[in-house]
């Protein structure tokens, strides 16, 4: 926001919006749109049985799964997985199972507010 207006109108810092409400876009993860706290159950992968077919990667609506090429295994992102279980449904070898979130210590998102 132009300095001229901020001074003339006494606009507090947290309300100084950019011209046209245009914001810089996120290049990678969007920390402003965490969806990990939508999850009541989490998909747990059995790496032994996983064939790395990438179905889970393709179907996950939140791009939560990715292939770690060095380790040759699927990696899951707790901050964004919302527990929809589409991956569990789509896994051809049934190596993903759903487990209640409170069974795990980790995966805590704990935002101050939903948004």
């Amino acid at each position: 926001m132009s300095k001229k207006y901020c001074e003339k109108f006494n606009i507090p810092k947290h309300l100084q919006v950019p011209l046209g409400a245009v914001l810089p876009a996120n290049k990678k993860e969007n920390k402003g749109m965490i969806t990990g706290n939508w999850r009541t159950v989490r998909p747990v992968i059995d790496h032994e049985a996983c064939t790395l077919c990438l179905n889970c990667f393709l179907f996950c609506p939140d791009a939560t799964w990715h292939l770690d090429e060095k380790e040759e295994k699927m990696v899951w992102n707790a901050d964004y997985c919302k527990g929809c279980l589409i991956c569990e449904n789509e896994c051809p070898v049934d190596c993903i199972s759903a487990v209640n979130e409170l069974e795990f210590k980790g995966g805590v998102v704990r935002l101050e507010k939903p948004f």
């Binding site: 939508w38 409170l102 805590v108 998102v109 704990r110 935002l111 939903p114």
Partner: peptide, 26 residues
């Protein structure tokens, strides 16, 4: 739903001495 405890600061804004009610079998 008890799993919400991991996702948010559910006591946001509470002063000391508050009460929490949880739907849980735990």
């Amino acid at each position: 739903d008890d799993t919400i405890v991991k996702g948010l600061n559910i006591l946001w804004g509470m002063d000391k001495g508050g009460v929490l009610v949880v739907n849980s079998k735990r």
